[in-house]
C-alpha cells in the first residue's frame, strides 16, 4: 500500500499572453487560459504508476481559486481517487512560503501519507521552491527533480537530474517528498470512462480558516513585497534579408557593425 498525495496547480497557459494585474502586481488570472500545469500531469502519472504497482490511494491537493476545479477534475479523470481543494479569497497574493504553509496543512488533512509528489517547478512562477519548502515544513526527506522514481518497501530511490548538477542518485525512507522533472514519463490521456468517473469523485473544499491559517496568509502577510511591476516593451523586429547566396556574409557584416565579432 502506498498512499500518495499529488500537488497540482492551475497556471496560465504558456501558449497565451501572461500578465500581472496592474493594481496589486499579482497574477492576472483572467488574462490567459487556465490549464493544469503540464508538469503536474507527469506527477499524477507517476503517482498512478506507483499506485498500480503497490496499491493505495492517490489524493490530489490543490491551492487555488474556484476555477482551479477544472484542473482538479482533469487530475481525477486521469485516475486520481479524490481531491482536497483549498480555495479562499484570503489567499490572494500568497507568496511561495505561505502557499507552502497552506499546502503543508492541507496535506496534513490526508491520513497515512507515504509519498508526496509535486512537479519540480510551475511554468508560471518558476520558483522551483515549493516542494523543498514543503519538505522543510513537514520534516520529510526531499528527493526533488526526479527523472526516475523507484519505490521498494519502505524506501524510495530517485535519479535527480538538473541542468547544473547532472545526475544525483538519492535514497530515503518513506514517508518522503519527491518532485518530478519533464523527463519522468509521458502522462496518459484521460479516457472517456475516466472523465465520467471523475464527476463522482469526492472533492473536499477547505478555507484558510478550516486549516487554522486565518489571518496569517495573503498579500498583506507575505514575507516579501512586490514594489512595482511593468511589462517590458516588446522587442521589435530588426532587419531581415532573403538569402541570395550571401546570407552568411551579410550576418557577419551585421555582427561586425555591432562590434560583436
Amino acid at each position: 500500500m502506498t498512499n500518495i498525495v499529488v500537488l497540482v496547480k492551475q497556471v496560465p497557459d504558456t501558449y497565451s499572453e501572461r500578465k500581472l494585474a496592474a493594481g496589486d502586481n499579482t497574477l492576472d488570472r483572467e488574462a490567459a487560459d487556465a490549464v493544469l500545469d503540464e508538469i503536474n500531469e507527469r506527477a499524477i502519472e507517476e503517482a498512478l504508476v506507483i499506485k498500480e504497482a503497490n496499491e493505495g490511494e492517490v489524493t490530489v491537493v490543490c491551492v487555488g481559486p474556484d476555477r482551479a476545479n477544472d484542473a482538479i477534475r482533469k487530475a481525477l479523470s486521469m485516475g486520481a481517487d479524490k481531491a482536497v481543494h483549498v480555495s479562499d479569497e484570503a489567499l490572494h497574493g500568497a507568496d511561495i512560503l505561505q502557499t507552502s504553509k497552506v499546502l503543508a496543512k492541507a496535506v496534513g488533512t490526508v491520513e497515512g501519507v507515504d509519498l508526496i509528489i509535486a512537479g519540480n517547478e510551475a511554468s508560471d512562477g518558476r520558483g522551483g521552491a515549493v516542494p523543498a519548502v514543503l519538505a522543510e515544513l513537514l520534516g520529510l526527506p526531499q528527493l526533488t527533480h526526479a527523472r526516475k522514481v523507484t519505490v521498494e518497501g519502505g524506501t524510495v530511490k530517485v535519479e535527480r537530474e538538473t541542468a547544473d548538477e547532472g545526475i544525483t542518485h538519492l535514497e530515503a525512507s518513506l514517508p518522503a517528498l519527491i518532485s518530478v522533472n519533464e523527463k519522468i514519463n509521458e502522462p496518459r490521456y484521460p479516457s472517456f470512462k475516466g472523465i465520467m468517473a471523475a464527476k463522482k469523485k469526492p472533492v473536499e473544499k477547505l478555507t484558510a480558516a478550516d486549516l487554522g491559517l486565518d489571518g496569517e496568509v495573503g498579500l498583506a502577510n507575505a514575507a516579501s513585497t512586490v514594489l512595482e511591476s511593468a511589462p517590458k516593451p516588446p522587442r521589435e523586429a530588426g532587419q531581415r534579408v532573403d538569402d541570395e547566396g550571401d546570407g552568411g556574409v551579410k550576418v557577419a557584416e551585421y555582427l561586425a557593425s555591432q562590434k560583436l565579432i
Binding site: 523586429a237 531581415r240 538569402d243 550571401d246 546570407g247 552568411g248
Partner: peptide, 24 residues
C-alpha cells in the same frame, strides 16, 4: 523568431551557417 530578431536571414541554415563560420 523574426519578430524578435535584430537581424534575420530567410534562407537555408545549411548554406548560411557554414558561410558565416568561414567569414568569421
Amino acid at each position: 523568431i523574426f519578430e524578435i530578431a535584430d537581424f534575420g536571414v530567410v534562407g537555408d541554415l545549411f548554406k548560411v551557417a557554414p558561410q558565416l563560420t568561414d567569414e568569421v
